[in-house]
Design a protein around this nucleic acid. Structure first.
Lengths: 117, 117
DNA sequence: GGGGCAGGTTACAACATTGTTACAAATAAA
DNA sequence: TTTATTTGTAACAATGTTGTAACCTGCCCC
């Protein structure tokens, strides 16, 4: 393999590693797993206030997380010009693919919480 | 159901919710998923320096995370009186039960990082 | 004596994140 | 006209988290 090829390959790996890190950092933010979980539990579009209620955090944090999820392409945001405003969030296909992992993860968490309680 | 029963039940739920939150907060700490993942990938006991190398973080953070994992009962720490010191970490049975979830989660992460790169 | 090794700990300054409060906008109801 | 509603945003102080640099043990080697 040429040096140029090798460098390109390293750059690619570097890039992939960066993307992996970025995703992990995002998933590790506070309330992120909670949000993905509640949205996964109920496939219907979910409103801001409903997410906030189920996740139990401040508007600011929920808004920040949802914006991050949208920027990463994991949720879609649809605003309706009602009064007062209505905004619905839905998981994208990519996020739905996370469902089995999240289910399994939360099953473990709930089970462990039970046994520790 | 009596009021006393109802109150006990609420207390239990409250306690479980607290435990769930605690676990989620722990799992959401920086490098936590990374550590669990590298330890899950290789079932052999792993030394501090090896974990640090694979996860790529400061000693301080790795030490903090391992201490938290140990306190939560997810890793066991064994120190040997060699010179220089040798310390081995292993996942507990509870943590090993997390394996399928983590595998699945990381599969999703790696796959998504690839497609986004 | 000096240096090196593994596996940390401590202190601290720099940085990141959080919740709170105040505010906005549009309209319908009181 | 005032109030209430939903879905946010902006600013900010308080709090939490991070890495760095210094240090520690115990022993071996030079």
């Amino acid at each position: 393999m040429s040096q140029a090829q090798s460098q390109r390959m390293e750059a690619m790996c570097e890039s992939a590693r960066t993307h992996v890190d970025h995703l992990l950092v995002m998933l590790s933010k506070s309330k992120m797993l909670n949000i993905l979980y509640v949205m996964n539990c109920d496939p219907a579009p979910m409103r801001f206030s409903e997410i906030k209620k189920r996740v139990d955090s401040s508007s600011t944090t929920i808004a920040r997380r949802l914006a991050e999820l949208e920027a990463t392409g994991l949720v879609n945001r649809k605003a309706y010009a009602t009064v007062p405003a209505t905004v619905e969030y839905t998981l994208t296909k990519d996020a739905i693919a996370l469902r089995p992992s999240l289910d399994s993860l939360f099953e473990w968490v709930l089970n462990r919480a039970d046994n520790t309680a």
